[in-house]
């Protein structure tokens, strides 16, 4: 895998966000708004991913990457909760934090450090 950390975060965040949105099909009450749910979940994943990747690039530490991932994803999830209502707090917050944890871990472990690669030239 030779993607930079923000690009890997973007790809992984987008994929997990899309899957997160698709799980809305398990909830019949979301049926009328499934299109918006999928689009916003994916957008949230993309934004979370690129931000987490950017932070991972700045701080070369697994712990910082994972914690920053959880924090960024939680913050974005909270913004969604403010719009969707507190009744869905854990429905949105738990998957969001899980996404942040995974993206934070993967960007630190598999993402290419662009600065380090450039220093070889």
């Amino acid at each position: 895998m030779s993607l930079s950390k923000p690009m890997l975060g973007l790809a992984l965040g987008g994929t997990l966000g899309l899957l997160d949105g698709l799980t809305g099909f398990f909830e019949p009450s979301l049926a009328p708004v499934m299109g918006s749910v999928i689009i916003f979940s994916m957008l949230k994943g993309l934004v979370s991913g690129v931000l987490i990747g950017y932070v991972s690039q700045k701080a070369d530490s697994m712990l910082v990457g994972v914690l920053a991932g959880i924090a960024i994803a939680a913050l974005l999830s909270f913004l969604v909760i403010l719009r969707a209502g507190m009744a869905l707090f854990w429905d949105i917050m738990l998957p969001g934090m899980l996404l942040g944890l995974i993206v934070g871990f993967c960007t630190q472990k598999f993402g290419q450090d662009v600065g380090a690669a450039g220093s070889h030239h």
Binding site: T15, L16, L19, T23, F26, D91, L94
Partner: peptide, 22 residues
């Protein structure tokens, strides 16, 4: 393989959270 398994694990956890919450 790693990413495929990771995404599968995420999906399983996501569904479990959904089932647990409801």
């Amino acid at each position: 393989r790693f990413f495929i398994l990771l995404i599968a694990a995420y999906l399983v956890m996501r569904v479990l959270i959904l089932l647990f919450m409801h």
